[in-house]
Design a protein around this nucleic acid. Structure first.
Length: 811
RNA sequence: GCCGGGAUGGCGGAAUCGGUAGACGCGGCGGUCUCAAAAACCGUUGGGGGCAACCUCGUGCGGGUUCGACUCCCGCUCCCGGCACCA
């Protein structure tokens, strides 16, 4: 008998069947031409490691949930997937396992990863799959490089760069964390002076900063991190005359208002004027200082906190406001790479200058005083801008802001300075000296110089043989595309962040053989409506992608200024206190989950475990609550007759009310990413349904509505079990069904709890209509024995009444 | 050091335009079923007091505002994340 057969819920018996059905029916295929409103849902494409855990699956479950939910709400959903498949881990793994090729390792991982996604029921439009290491993808990455090159945004320059001695390649600034390599937390990055490729991201600094205002649906902290990373400051460049020389010394300061307090100057060790400024008497000491600082890594320079070092050059500059002669020092607390590499030091109003002046006995002169006239502490710098000028000649008495403008204007009219801005952001170093990346499509010709590879010769494919490109002459020896003479291919590859900076565009037109994408299709689908991924990409990937979007907008290929409309950053999953990973021995694999509790229970649990933006601790027994919930749902939907009637008095209107309250709650929670409370609401509904049956409730239309609604609301989280139930109670696929419609009338309560307080303390609860008028409420409250006792013959001096919530009698 | 986020039962967490603190779940306890156990199901579960109706304390700590504070304000402690000589 059919009923007997389906009395038990066995996830392994139904899950593969529905996974096949969804694929056969093309459930997640996105149509470019559709009557429906588009919704571009994207999860960050992963680097395909071999052993994904349920921790990794968390954001794919979130993405799948949103995609399924939006489809049911009537959107044409684009929900694609791909692989960030270039990069060093593949090379390192290949090296470790002998003669394995990075490509083979990567492609095997992709297969395994994809299988695990599929077995937990995650659907994508696989027709649009993108693989960064495939020639038909990196061909277009190279195409985009050449676009940047033509637009003057890619350049080659000798520069001191960050070098990771383990990976044997350079790193972008963004990939250096406190002086350590981002991939090896115990490996110090070295400084090397090399010729490298850069992207002029600093040209876009203002737009990258200003357009953050277009992103109200990004997490505040990500916006803040980007803002700080770009680090725009407004200041003034000032030329300080040098004593006894014609040329000046240019400095950058954000505090020109403190110029009367500038009692010395400091040059960075790299400053070009340093050798010519150094006097004979100081030369030996300066040489020794430079020698010492050159051998220091960044981390060592940073660790000199609490003890700044420096040497006087013997030269002097003239303070243009006070006409004083002030000494010029060299110190490595001034960076050669920021501003002009030289500063005016105002020890009274800058902590670093203060510390330096204290150490070397240089004069400290206060020129700003708190506006309130308070005395300032003598043992530290007064750095507030809320003050007025003192000891500042004709400017004395002005506020800091007024003085900034006045001095700026004065210097500009004299031609000795100008107001300007600076950024912390540096140009993006994109070249890497390894094998497993997209080759930079440039040819070095001894006669023609840097020659871009013609577009019709793309892609410049990687040689089949796995070895550093610069070691493979048979690959890099070529002919110049312009003059035909002997030439050499660029042997650097591109940073993998290049691949991920535009993949979301390729998804809109993944099969295009003529161009990276058709602008019309890209503009149809873009921007990404919902982007979900880890916070670890808050700066790097998201900043680079925004940069690409803007460059392509300038090139006329895109119309939107920003690629990602709404961003969600999910937390990590830990187990036994550490981030879940196969290598740490604390991972739970998708296979284990599917074979144990089933994909649906795992998905529901991942959503229920905690707020999705928080890190959460996986609990092996915590999941049982979700398993029980699914079993209960199964029994309610398919075998309600097995639930024992233990009382009478079922209320059909109450059930219907609960159903509609749940529709509203779950819909709002899905929209607002409160998946944990959505699960709780569905559990509540199933509890109410169970009580309804236990109280002898009938199983007519109201009951059916509750089963259908619960199935639809649960489907995005637990698609297999709901699909199986739907095949018994509904038409077509549950995945294709429409989202339930909320009925406000059905959801409204005729009677609500009214809390009665006496002096702010809860004394009783009354069942009353929600809009009960105050006099009636007061009358009922005063009739309550508990209230009579608490009032103790006193009269209410005051009554606070909030209809539908509480009445508070204040004696 | 600076910026941001947080602290609620045994545990994960709900509830923040100020209005029943602890939804939902885990675990615990008691029970049904069973030869027994598991599973499932039912009941119960913040602390203290009381036979009970009830009373009382309780959202990191100390103050304050309010009829009423997990929620707002002031001052702390601790935890997490980001940045860290950017002039």
């Amino acid at each position: 008998m059919a009923v007997t057969r389906r009395r038990t819920y066995v996830p392994q018996e139904i899950e593969p069947k529905w996974q096949r059905t969804w694929v056969e029916r093309g459930v997640m295929k996105a149509a470019d031409a559709s009557e429906r409103r588009k919704f571009y849902n994207l999860v960050m494409f992963p680097y395909p490691s071999g052993d994904p855990t349920v921790g990794h699956m968390r954001n794919y479950v979130i993405g799948d949930l949103i995609a399924r939910f939006k489809r049911m709400c009537g959107f044409e959903v684009l929900n694609p997937f791909g692989w960030d498949a270039f990069g060093l881990p593949a090379e390192n793994a290949a090296k470790k396992r002998g003669n394995l090729h990075p490509r083979d390792w990567t492609l095997a991982n992709i297969q395994s990863f994809r299988r695990q996604l599929e077995m937990i029921g995650i659907l994508y439009d696989w027709d649009r799959e993108v693989t960064a290491c495939a020639p038909d993808y990196y061909r277009w990455t190279q195409w985009l490089f050449l676009l940047f090159f033509e637009r003057g945004l890619a350049y080659r320059e000798m520069a001191p760069v960050n070098w990771c001695p383990v990976d044997e390649t350079v790193l972008a600034n963004e990939q250096v964390i406190n002086g350590y390599c981002w991939r090896h937390e115990d490996v110090l990055v070295e400084k090397r002076y090399l010729e490298q490729w850069f992207f002029r991201i600093t040209d876009y600094a203002d737009r990258l900063l200003n357009d953050l205002d277009l992103l109200p649906e990004w997490p505040e902290r990500v916006v803040t991190m980007q803002r700080n990373w770009i680090g725009r400051s407004h200041g003034v460049e000032i030329d300080f005359p040098l004593d006894g020389r014609a040329e000046g010394l240019r400095v950058y300061t954000t505090r020109p208002d403190t110029i009367h307090g500038a009692t010395f100057m400091v040059l960075a060790p790299e400053h070009p004027l340093l050798p010519s400024l150094t006097t004979e008497g100081q030369r030996a000491e300066i040489q020794a200082y430079l020698e010492a600082s050159r051998h220091q890594t960044d981390i060592q320079r940073l660790s000199t906190e609490g003890g700044k070092t420096g040497v006087a050059t013997g030269a002097y500059a003239i303070n243009p406001m006070t006409r004083e002669r002030i000494p010029i020092w060299v110190a490595d607390y001034v960076l050669g790479s920021y501003g002009t590499g030289a500063i005016m030091a105002v020890p009274a109003h800058d902590e670093r200058d203060f510390e330096f002046a204290r150490r070397f006995g240089l004069p400290i002169r206060q020129v700003i005083a708190p506006s309130g006239g308070e005395r300032i502490a003598q043992d530290r710098a007064f750095t507030s801008k809320e003050g007025v000028l003192v000891n500042s000649g004709g400017l004395t008495g002005l506020s800091c802001a007024e003085a900034f403008e006045r001095i700026g204007a004065e210097l500009e009219s004299q031609g000795t300075g100008r107001r300007t801005k600076r950024y912390r952001l540096r140009d993006w170093l994109i070249s890497r000296q390894r094998y497993w990346g997209a080759p930079i499509p440039i040819v070095h010709c001894p006669t023609c110089g840097l020659v871009p590879v013609p577009l019709d010769q793309l892609p410049v494919t990687l040689p089949a043989h796995y070895e550093r490109l610069s070691e493979q002459p048979e690959w890099y020896e070529t002919k110049c595309p312009v003059c035909g003479g002997g030439a050499r291919r660029e042997t650097d590859t591109m940073d993998t962040f290049m691949d991920s900076s535009w993949y979301f565009l390729r998804f809109t037109d993944a099969q295009n053989q003529e161009r990276p994408f058709d602008p019309e299709l890209a503009n149809h689908w873009m921007p990404v409506d919902q982007y979900t991924g880890g916070v670890e990409h808050a700066i790097l990937h998201l900043l680079y992608s925004r940069f690409f979007q803007k460059v392509l907008q300038d090139a006329g290929l895109l119309s939107e200024p920003e690629p990602f409309k709404r961003l969600f950053t999910q937390g990590m999953v830990t187990r036994f206190g550490a981030v879940m990973a196969k290598s740490k021995g604390n991972g739970v694999s998708p296979e284990e989950l599917v074979q144990g509790q089933g994909a649906d229970a795992g998905r529901v649990y991942e959503m229920f475990i905690g707020p999705p933006e928080d890190d959460v601790e996986w609990s092996d027994q915590g999941i049982t609550g979700c398993t029980r919930f699914l079993h209960r749902y199964w029994r309610l939907a398919l075998a309600p007759e097995t639930i024992a009637v233990t009382s009478t008095g079922a209320d059909a209107a109450a059930l219907r009310r609960k159903v509609h309250q749940t529709i509203r709650k779950v819909t709002d929670d899905y929209e607002g990413f409160h998946f944990n409370t959505a699960v709780a609401a569905l559990m509540e509904l199933s509890n109410a349904m169970h009580e309804h049956l236990a109280a002898g409730g009938e199983r007519g239309m109201g009951w059916e509505e509750s089963v259908r609604s619960l199935s639809l609301l649960l489907h995005p989280m637990a698609p297999h079990i709901t699909e199986e139930v739907w095949s018994e109670i509904g038409e077509g696929l549950c995945a294709d069904a429409s989202w339930p419609v909320f009925d406000a009338v059905a959801a409204s309560e005729s009677q609500v709890d009214l809390v009665v307080q006496v002096g702010g303390k809860r004394r009783d609860v009354l069942r009353v209509p929600p809009e009960l008028p105050e006099p009636a409420a007061l009358k009922q409250a005063l009739a309550s024995p508990a209230v009579v006792r608490a009032m103790a013959d006193r009269e209410p001096r005051r009554v606070v009444y909030v209809p539908g919530r509480l009445i508070n009698l204040v004696p």
